[in-house]
Design a protein around this nucleic acid. Structure first.
Length: 285
DNA sequence: TTTGGACCTGTACGC
DNA sequence: TGTTTCAGGTCCAAA
């Protein structure tokens, strides 16, 4: 075991299951609630220990593995700094208090892109089911001291398997989107990780070129995997909060992309972090 | 620039 | 048991 250093209090449960990532799985281990994920080909397990995170697997975790985990969990984020910036906002202040320690995650951009293409017109339970089916339908099996585990399929594996394969797994019309997106990434030789060094506008333009990726999905991918902390996904939940709390208007139609750009300016450079607190609070009302 | 309908599927409903 | 609705949207055509 190894306690990960984090800059702020860390709420693992809220962070892992707040709807930003669907690849974490709860594990009951030694009567303690642990959580498991595969990152960069390695299986990791963590558990909450007071305000911190205890990395319990791999057993003799290397420095490099520890960095991979810390990087994914964004333990260096200074939540106190973000809290300060919204001190005058009573609604936000109460939700920051209620979910103190909720962090964003830094996911793999490819896995995140597939996840949120799946999310369209869909619910959380089924998104998770679809991703599990996808992972289990490929033979990317690895073995460690806990047994076998699988890694996420690559774009070329998805192309080789074909669109029909995705349809047979229950992806519906999203099968075509994921298949075509895989083709574009492979044939145009796109390195999604490089997008981390690009700004918001360039990434929005790049991501919305993929079929099945509109404003909302692109903003999710940017916020949850590309370090664009000013990304601001507007879905039905965020739409409700913004109207009820900030606009006092639940009737007039306003395009989501207009709401998005308005509140990006309003909330500032960490608007994406604020977005996630608004989302999580509204869903847990 | 905006609007409305179609799109896969599983589930929660009403009968 | 058999419809209808809805779920963290996107795309396309038409106004």
């Amino acid at each position: 075991m190894m306690i990960l250093k984090s800059k702020s209090k860390y709420d693992l449960e809220s962070t892992l299951y707040s709807g930003q990532c669907f690849l974490w799985n709860p594990i009951l281990s030694d009567n303690l609630q642990a959580h498991e994920i595969v990152l960069g080909g390695t299986r990791f397990r963590v558990q909450q220990l007071s305000d911190k995170i205890d990395a319990i697997y791999p057993l003799n975790i290397t420095q490099n593995q520890s960095l991979i985990l810390q990087n994914h969990l964004r333990v260096d984020d200074d939540l106190g700094y973000i809290y300060q910036s919204i001190e005058s906002d009573k609604y936000l202040l109460s939700s920051f208090k209620k979910f103190e320690g909720l962090h964003l995650l830094r996911q793999d951009p490819w896995e995140c892109l597939v996840t949120f293409i799946c999310s369209s017109n869909n619910n959380m339970k089924r998104i998770k089911l679809m991703l599990n089916k996808l992972i289990n339908s490929f033979d990317n099996t690895h073995t460690d001291s806990l047994g076998e585990y699988k890694t996420f399929p690559t774009p070329d594996q998805i192309i080789e398997a074909g669109e029909e394969h995705l349809r047979s797994l229950g992806f519906g019309y999203r099968a075509k989107y994921i298949f075509e997106t895989s083709r574009i990434i492979l044939y145009e030789n796109i390195d999604l990780l490089k997008l981390r060094s690009q700004n918001y506008d360039d990434n929005l333009e790049q991501l919305t070129m993929f079929p099945g990726v509109g404003d909302k999905v692109a903003n999710c991918v940017m916020l949850f995997s590309l370090d664009n902390l000013n990304a601001f996904p507007v879905d039905v939940w965020i739409n409700r909060v913004l109207r009820e709390i900030y606009l006092n208007d639940s009737k007039n139609k306003i395009a989501d992309s207009r709401l998005r750009s308005h509140f990006q300016s309003y909330f500032g450079e960490y608007s994406g972090y604020i977005n996630h607190y608004l989302f999580h609070s509204r869903r847990n009302d």
